[in-house]
Design a protein around this nucleic acid. Structure first.
Lengths: 218, 218
DNA sequence: GCAAAAGTGTTTCATCTACACCCATGT
DNA sequence: ACATGGGTGTAGATGAAACACTTTTGC
């Protein structure tokens, strides 16, 4: 699964299959693991083939192996999900795909095979994951505003957060570096741009710090 | 992986292999998935064959598929872990096993294949899991004391907790039912026995309650 | 009566929550 | 000058942390 964030919405990259079974249905991108290939390497390879991206956040999710989940025989899927910065690439149809596009993650409609279930599991994990680890930043451009970050959490949690407390909480963690720059050409007071300070996070983590964002609803 | 809790220690059930490769090394119990068997069903089957137990907590952990991790060919392992009440059964050697015994989970020594890595991943997940969900009770007998529960957390987290605050926190959740019974034949004031009220937990969960045990070190 | 663990209350401090107004920019 | 979102401070409530002593049993 490839997650992205754009226009305030959590998106997922789907392909429209050009082959049976499940021809013309939307499906998760994926392909077979090679004979002597590690699972992580296979996930990275498929991701690279789909997006051209390397060095992105990639994590194993779960393995799905119900008999009968694929019409042509027993297929066991080791699902991975990755978080990408959505404007780092332009989706192009290739391989199994007739079309490749971003879909808003809520209301995906029917998906091929058991892919709806896989997406549901991924979403559940993603929601937990952004709460307890600073992975949300993987979905944002290198420089972002606090409001963008808040909208990211709101999109993933499907909730609205209280602005002042969210900002206070995030800034109090001391993990964002103020870039000294502001937005350009916006018809309102321009917001400050920040970047995530990964090295500081690693240092704090070692000394027992725990990242946590509370779900402080509005 | 089969976790148990006994004598204040977190234990794991290991088999001593009676066949090459890795003969006579301690290994995680496991076996092949059948041709038309679901993964969950296979995990349950292996667990039943090892312990005779059914209806226990069982959860998929992760999938391990490095080429070369098994000497005789490519083996991909879908690891599950289960939490059992340790005195519900007596381990008996069978199948691949020359011996089957409980081992204290810290300082396991060398394990067969990459099983040490699998145990490490499981431990990490178990630590998170007992913090955020009431799964610790799966490791305790149906009636337990608060001190036993505390020792369970201490064993899994490898830390010491502050007694009063731990008890206050746990009791405040209102998830334990006082059985009105006390320990028998102990050379000190007998402790009250409690049971976990699962139906109350399910109800609270639906109305937005989140189980969480803080790591309040002593 | 002594050893051993069970059980309990309160104060202090930190964090969370709720809330309303001024600021900087483009048009 | 107005519309738009950016940005901030504080008081009150809540929860966490730290602390020592009394109780009940077996021997």
């Amino acid at each position: 699964m490839i997650f992205g964030f754009d226009e305030g919405e959590l998106k997922i990259l789907l392909i429209k299959r050009k082959e049976a079974p499940e021809e013309d249905k939307w499906a998760l991108p994926g392909y077979f693991v090679e004979k002597e290939e590690a699972l992580d390497a296979a996930a990275q390879r498929v991701l690279r083939q789909m997006t051209g991206l390397e060095d992105v956040y990639l994590e194993q999710l779960a393995t799905f192996g119900q008999p009968g989940r694929h019409a042509l025989g027993r297929v066991i899927t080791v699902a991975y999900y990755s978080l990408v910065k959505i404007d780092d690439f332009e989706p192009k149809a290739a391989g199994l795909a007739r079309e490749v596009t971003w879909h808003t993650v809520h209301n995906l409609g029917d998906l091929a095979f058991d892919h709806a279930e896989i997406v549901a599991v991924a979403l559940k994990q993603l929601r937990e994951s952004i709460r307890l680890r600073p992975v949300g930043f993987e979905l944002l451009p290198p420089a972002f505003t606090l409001t963008e970050l808040q909208h990211l959490y709101e999109a993933i949690w499907e909730t609205e957060l209280e602005k002042r407390n969210f900002r206070k909480k995030i800034l109090a963690m001391n993990l964002l570096r103020d870039l000294g720059q502001v937005q350009q050409n916006v018809a309102h007071r321009p917001a400050k741009l920040y970047e995530f300070d990964e090295s500081r996070y690693r240092a704090l983590e070692k000394s027992g710090f725990n990242f946590e964002v509370k779900e402080n609803r509005r």
